[in-house]
Amino acid sequence: MVHETLAATNAIVVLDVALPSVFWGWIITMNMWAKSVGTGIIFLTFFLLKKYPEQTGFIRFPAVVISIVFIHLFLFFTVIDLHQMFRFWHIFFYPHLTSAITIGAWMATGFVGLLLAMTYAIYMKKDEAMYDKLLGWTTLLAIPVTLYTAGLMAEATARELWQMPTESAQMILAALLAGSATMLLLGGNKFSEAVKKDLALVLGFSAAAAFILYMSEYIFGGMKAEEVAATLAFVKGGEYTAMFWIGQVLAFLIPMALVCLSLKNKSYYLLKIAAVSALVGLWVSKHVWLVIPQLLNMS
């Protein structure tokens, strides 16, 4: 590892130009966070309508509206992050198909189309069968829409920390976490105990799995690549340490603990706190993971 040669060589940069600072910052964090909610709520709607069709029918309309709102938030933040936002249409007219950005934009557009069709089915036509049929396709498309950001991060060859297998798992888990948290807040006491329990389990397990992945990276990531070790130093005593742990505690540890407690006490109140904590913490942990590889000097 060249880093260990520093003491011997005493190599110091004595004259250079200033380096670029963070390019993908809070706007891209908002983008990822909003997409997790927008796609996650669809996953959970599909699950609940399949498992509890009688008790959860009322979520059809609010769930699709929430998804539309959050997917549009995602699109909004995508566009305003562009340095030339009024050229956004170039993605559709000069598409480059090796780019995850292009594929993602197309899929997100298809996703919005399906969501609007679902709204039409349930609001204008009051046709639940049509809604449920469309929901199947929308859920299928929600998977790659969730995953494409992982592809984009993987294509960011410079950022060794972001690897496709881990990031895709993290994207799906983030969607399940955000979706179950939003659904818990949306359904309130209208859900039966069984539904609440299922949502709590999805929340708890996705928090646990995501936490395990983060900790695996935290502990083992640096053993494989020096760049990853240097990146993780920013959360191991570096400037993002506090924010990293705040994110982990809020997004994963508190929800896990509260889910356990609420299952024991049958307390919906605790679940609501768990849901809010998960949503806030998810933003923080995504943000830290997005920013730290950008702090590393590339040249």
């Binding site: 670029p20 390019f23 030339q84 050229r87 984009l152 060859t157 410079a158 590339m298 040249s299």
Partner: peptide, 20 residues
């Protein structure tokens, strides 16, 4: 003229060779 300024290339270049 075609670039939309997404900064994807800035993220991707392992040599920090691109700027906005």
């Amino acid at each position: 003229e075609r670039c939309i300024g997404c900064a994807g290339c800035v993220m991707a270049c392992p040599y920090g060779a691109i700027y906005i």
